[in-house]
Design a protein around this nucleic acid. Structure first.
Length: 829
RNA sequence: GCCGGAGUGGCGGAACUGGCAUACGCGAUCGACUCAAAAUCGAUUGCCCUUGCGGGCUUGUGGGUUCGAAUCCCACCUCCGGCACCA
């Protein structure tokens, strides 16, 4: 008997699917569009094509494909497209090193992804394939840029930016991790440059409020985004420096502690700093301090155990609530990027201000009493972060601080010295990059007209071919003189093109819309197609995109909806984030030499084994450690199914299984229906693929256990044939090739054309149940009991048990608990 | 520090609404087949005591609620992830 040979099976079915374009779906109005079926948009995050696919890709697409297959067989018209996020730094860095054009390396990698997706048997609608580096795609990325520009949502301004000296480019705040470049790990420095921004901050409140519109997102992803947006409610309060006749607004979340302010601190980058100290004795020391801080990296400055430093300015401001003059300082623990770059310092109730006050010998004043009377008396327990009664706060004394909060803000407002205010951590999205391998920003600079957008009909602004990719502080595109020199679209005078390109996150912020109308060369998409398919019903990807990509895509969706181009406010109704696969307990990396190449495993065991393994190794939202023994275990299981199919195919005849069958035939039929029921429920519950697969394993195990007896009779033969075909049908979403092959051999049908099986309720119940008998909550016996036995009958059975009787000996039953169909618990004393 | 998540056999993990803890897989031991090995098939496999029958213990730790807790409540410990001088 020939063994399981996945190679031949898998190739055969891949050719069927490719030849028949099995997974293509039509848009509304096109031939082949099915009006009856509800739609389901199943989408995995598009890959960044660099080298070969790794196991993370295998897992993501195996998980997504299982969902796509299940939904199809549940009667949905499933759209399941694929594309490539093909602009970006790694291809360009490779180009700088090797001289190979980024396009060449990228397209080679795309070819490798395409080949592997086919070899894995992922059910992709290839007619909708896209790559973000093609002019057909980025033409519309540029179009969206122009739309945002027209609405004032894209703007250019000089700003302090994070600059990576190694990659010689600016970075988004989101791409700076612990003060280092996310990509190359180099320490980031600050620079002032003219840059392009998207006004995402205009959408902060909607980005927060619309979490409500989502159906199912992991709670931690929502929390991460919420923290990233960082909305704080508080008040803006104005402190005045009489000596230089300047007002200094501060943002505070604790206006109730205003009476406790004992000093005032400006960030080293504060624009009024020079004016405050010019010509004063403090000037030299302040300048030296500011210069020193300026030279420090973001990492040094943000270090966890950094001691507080600062310099007194020799100036003071007036506290608006009590007229007190408090001294001013410059200190680097105040950040220019947040709030107003200045703070009122309340050392009695803020740990950072407290530390500073201790170091500089400044007064610490308590203005809220703790509930603990010991703490209430003096400076014990300071800084105090809790709530309590106001003290040392004039006419607010005795009030609870939460109450006083509003009254103080109201009073400031009436005096014109303050008002309620909201602050966000989120900054506008810096989208320009001084890099080659990205979509050119479609803008022209004209001496007469200034910044002029390229008219939509002139798009795309194509990326020119160049020789030298190395950045020299400005975009490599600046060297392409013929390309840069152009005419002003408005006045026709000589003008110069923008030489920066767009952040690749821009490309991936709208690709899910382009799939829906991928070859439209008259518009980014057809509104009817997008209205039909959006939103994405299930989005799947790595949790590393929890903030950046997902928030940018949400922002784009809202902005495009405001422009009238879209009818939804949220792009992804349901989100699933898969966990990372490790090897030997560690993250895979080439330097550690612990990488796993999916290609090797597909070659050795077949795609079905590799796919089923990544779904079986544990709950997919959690990570898991890749082991070869685990892969072999799954391969064993699929081989068992294969051999069972071969045996059943020769030893039984096709025939309807009879629900009236008795004995082992009925036992196996019941197991098959149990498996149908279990897998269906687990699929509907979410992503419990490991338990889905284990249910099919149980079914196959039972078939092996019972098969020899079943071959004897026609009913038995029909039962095991049904059980085997059912196993194939249920495992199909994970092992589509083997599932198709086995199902076809035993039924003559194509499994993906069959609806998902339905469990027969009559076979889910049995006429006896195992009754668990406990004495004082401890298991003492198991008894087979009639399923419909009454409470009294169950108690009777329980008491008759010898094993139970032993534990009742000499004791008195004080309570009897009966859960029909399950258990009896006798409480004795 | 703040915000999430998780602690179950030798390992990955299962257990629905509080009701048989350890499904399924891996590993291990034994047996069948074989000249032999691999593959395959079958049996055993939480820990402790006991020749056996049987008994005791066990879901990170300590307490609580309950006839009954991996599951609910309180306190604590450990690990993982995110954010972090954000006023």
């Amino acid at each position: 008997m020939p063994g399981y040979e996945p190679k031949a099976i898998e190739r055969r079915w891949q050719e069927v699917w490719a030849g028949e374009k099995t997974w293509e779906v039509a848009n509304p109005g096109q031939p082949g569009f099915d009006e009856e079926k509800p739609k389901a948009y199943v989408l995995e995050m598009l890959p960044y094509p660099s080298g070969e696919p790794h196991v993370g890709h295998l897992k993501c697409y195996a998980v997504g494909d299982a969902i796509a297959h299940f939904r199809r067989r549940q009667g949905f018209q499933v759209i399941h497209p694929m594309g490539y996020d093909s602009f970006g730094l790694p291809a360009e860095n490779n180009a700088i090193k090797t001289g190979e054009p980024p396009r060449v390396a990228t397209e080679r990698s795309i070819a490798s992804f395409q080949r592997q997706f086919r070899e894995w048997g992922i059910s992709i609608d290839w007619s909708r394939e896209l790559a973000t580096h093609t002019p057909e795609y980025y033409r519309w990325t540029q179009w969206i840029f122009l739309q945002l520009f027209e609405r004032g949502l894209a703007y250019r301004t000089e700003a302090p930016v994070q600059w990576c000296p190694k990659d010689a480019t600016v970075l988004a705040n989101e791409q700076v991790v612990d003060g280092r470049c996310e990509r190359c790990g180099t320490e980031v420095i600050q620079k002032n440059l003219e840059q392009w921004f998207f006004r995402i901050t205009e959408y902060t409140d909607r980005l927060l409020a619309d979490f409500e519109l989502l159906e199912s997102w992991p709670e931690h992803v929502i929390t991460m985004q919420r923290n990233w947006i960082g909305r704080s409610e508080g008040a803006e309060v104005v402190f005045r420096c009489e000596e230089v006749d300047l007002d200094f607004p501060v943002f505070t979340t604790r206006p109730d502690t205003l009476f406790g302010a004992t000093f005032f601190v400006l960030a080293p980058e504060h624009p009024e700093l020079q004016r405050l100290v010019a010509g004063t004795p403090a000037e030299a020391e302040v300048r030296e301090y500011v210069n020193r801080i300026g030279r420090e990296s973001a990492e040094e400055r943000g270090a966890e155990d950094r001691e507080k430093t600062g310099v007194p300015l020799g100036r003071s401001v007036v506290n608006p609530v009590n007229g007190e003059e408090i001294p001013m300082f410059v200190a680097d623990y105040v950040l220019m990027e947040y709030g107003t770059g200045a703070i009122m310092a309340v050392p009695g109730h803020d740990s950072r201000d407290y530390e500073f006050a201790q170091k500089f010998g400044l007064p610490v004043k308590r203005v809220i009493e703790g509930t603990d009377p010991e703490q209430a008396r003096d400076d014990e327990g300071l800084p105090f972060a809790g709530d309590g009664a106001m003290t040392g706060s004039g006419r607010f004394d005795g009030k609870h601080n939460r109450e006083a909060y509003d009254e103080i803000v109201a009073w400031l407002n009436s005096e014109g010295r303050g008002e309620t205010a909201v602050n966000y951590r989120l900054r506008d999205w810096l989208v320009s990059r001084q890099r080659y391998w990205g979509a050119p920003i479609p803008v022209v600079y004209c001496d007469e007209c200034g910044i002029v957008p390229v008219p939509a009909e002139q798009l795309p602004v194509e990326l020119p071919e160049i020789e030298d990719y190395a950045p020299q502080g400005k975009s490599p595109l600046a060297a392409a003189e013929d390309w840069v020199a152009t005419e002003c679209p408005r006045c026709g005078a000589a003008a110069r093109r923008e030489t920066d390109t767009m952040d690749t996150f821009v490309d991936s912020s709208w690709y899910f819309l382009r799939y829906l109308d991928a070859h439209n060369d008259g518009a980014a998409w057809d509104r009817e197609a997008v209205d039909h398919w959006m939103a994405v019903d299930q989005y799947i990807g790595g949790v590393e995109h929890a903030i950046l990509h997902l928030m940018y895509a949400r922002f784009f969706t809202k902005a495009l909806a405001d422009l009238g181009s879209l009818g939804v406010q949220e792009p992804f109704a349901n989100l699933f984030t898969q966990g990372m696969i490790t090897r030997d307990g560690a993250k895979m990396s080439k330097s550690k030499g612990n990488t796993v190449s999916p290609g090797d495993y597909v070659e050795r065991y077949g795609a079905d084994t590799a796919r089923t393994y990544v779904c079986f190794m544990g709950p997919p939202e959690r990570g898991g450690d890749w082991t070869d023994e685990g892969v072999e275990g799954v391969n064993r299981f699929l081989s068992r199914l294969w051999r069972l199919c071969e045996e059943v195919g020769t030893r039984t005849e096709a025939g309807e299984p009879s629900a009236a069958a008795g004995g082992e035939a009925r036992e196996l039929l019941a197991k098959a229906h149990w498996a149908i029921d279990k897998t269906t429920r687990d699929f509907q519950r979410g992503f419990q693929f490991n338990t889905v697969i284990s249910a099919v394993m149980e079914l196959v195990n039972d078939a092996y256990r019972l098969k020899d007896g079943l071959y004897e009779t026609p009913e038995g033969g029909a039962a095991i044939r049904f059980a085997t075909a059912t196993a194939a049908s249920l495992v199909f979403p994970f092992a589509p090739h083997l599932g198709s092959e086995v199902y076809e051999r035993l039924t003559g049908e194509r499994v993906w054309e069959q609806p998902w099986p339905q469990a027969d309720p009559a076979l889910l119940v049995s006429d006896t149940v195992t009754l668990v008998v406990q004495v004082n909550g401890k298991l003492r016996d198991r008894i087979e009991a009639p399923a419909e036995a009454s409470k009294e009958e169950l108690l009777q059975l329980a008491r008759e048990s010898e094993k139970v009787a032993k534990h009742l000996d000499g004791q008195q039953i004080v309570k009897e608990i009966v859960v029909p169909g399950k258990l009896v618990n006798l409480v004795v004393r």
